[in-house]
Amino acid sequence: MAGRKPKPTSLKMLEGNPGKRQLNPNEPKPDASVPKCPAWLSKEAKREWKRLVPFLEQAGLLTQVDRAAFAGYCQSYADWVDAKAHIAEEGSTFETPNGYQQQTPWVSIAQASLKTMLKFCTEFGLTPSSRSRIVAANAPESEADDMEMLLGGDG
Score class of each variant (00 low, 15 high):
81 V>A: 03
65 V>N: 15
100 Y>N: 15
127 T>V: 11
73 Y>R: 04
123 E>M: 15
92 S>M: 11
71 A>R: 05
110 A>F: 01
81 V>C: 00
73 Y>Q: 01
84 K>P: 02
114 L>P: 03
101 Q>G: 10
113 S>C: 11
115 K>W: 09
77 Y>W: 09
70 F>Y: 06
88 A>M: 05
76 S>M: 02
121 C>E: 08
76 S>A: 12
117 M>C: 04
77 Y>H: 07
113 S>D: 03
68 A>S: 15
115 K>M: 11
106 W>C: 02
64 Q>T: 14
86 H>Y: 09
98 N>D: 12
107 V>M: 05
126 L>I: 00
120 F>W: 08
64 Q>V: 13
97 P>E: 11
115 K>G: 11
118 L>F: 08
93 T>D: 10
106 W>A: 01
74 C>I: 04
102 Q>R: 13
65 V>K: 13
96 T>S: 09
123 E>Y: 14
106 W>F: 10
98 N>H: 10
77 Y>T: 00
96 T>Y: 06
68 A>D: 15
70 F>G: 02
117 M>I: 03
112 A>Y: 01
85 A>K: 00
112 A>G: 05
104 T>V: 14
88 A>G: 09
82 D>K: 07
64 Q>G: 10
110 A>C: 06
88 A>C: 08
90 E>N: 14
128 P>C: 08
75 Q>Y: 01
127 T>R: 08
93 T>Y: 10
113 S>G: 10
99 G>E: 11
121 C>G: 06
121 C>Y: 04
73 Y>D: 00
76 S>G: 06
87 I>S: 03
118 L>D: 05
68 A>H: 15
71 A>H: 06
82 D>Y: 07
92 S>P: 14
122 T>D: 15
109 I>L: 10
68 A>C: 14
79 D>W: 03
107 V>H: 01
72 G>T: 06
124 F>Y: 08
124 F>C: 07
78 A>F: 00
98 N>L: 12
119 K>Q: 14
126 L>A: 03
67 R>T: 13
126 L>C: 02
75 Q>E: 07
112 A>F: 02
109 I>C: 06
71 A>T: 08
86 H>K: 12
79 D>T: 00
101 Q>F: 12
93 T>W: 07
68 A>W: 14
67 R>D: 10
101 Q>I: 09
90 E>M: 13
107 V>K: 01
89 E>A: 14
86 H>V: 08
68 A>V: 15
71 A>K: 07
107 V>E: 04
81 V>P: 02
94 F>Y: 15
66 D>Y: 10
106 W>R: 01
120 F>L: 05
99 G>K: 12
111 Q>K: 12
86 H>R: 12
114 L>G: 06
99 G>A: 13
126 L>M: 07
121 C>H: 05
64 Q>I: 14
102 Q>Y: 11
99 G>F: 10
69 A>K: 06
106 W>L: 04
108 S>Q: 11
109 I>M: 10
69 A>F: 06
75 Q>A: 04
117 M>Q: 00
63 T>Y: 01
90 E>V: 10
103 Q>I: 14
67 R>E: 14
112 A>H: 03
81 V>G: 04
93 T>A: 08
75 Q>G: 01
91 G>P: 05
91 G>C: 06
113 S>V: 00
128 P>L: 09
73 Y>M: 01
102 Q>W: 13
97 P>Q: 11
110 A>S: 07
66 D>L: 09
69 A>T: 05
103 Q>S: 13
88 A>N: 07
72 G>E: 01
95 E>L: 13
87 I>F: 05
105 P>A: 10
87 I>R: 04
104 T>K: 13
115 K>Q: 13
101 Q>A: 12
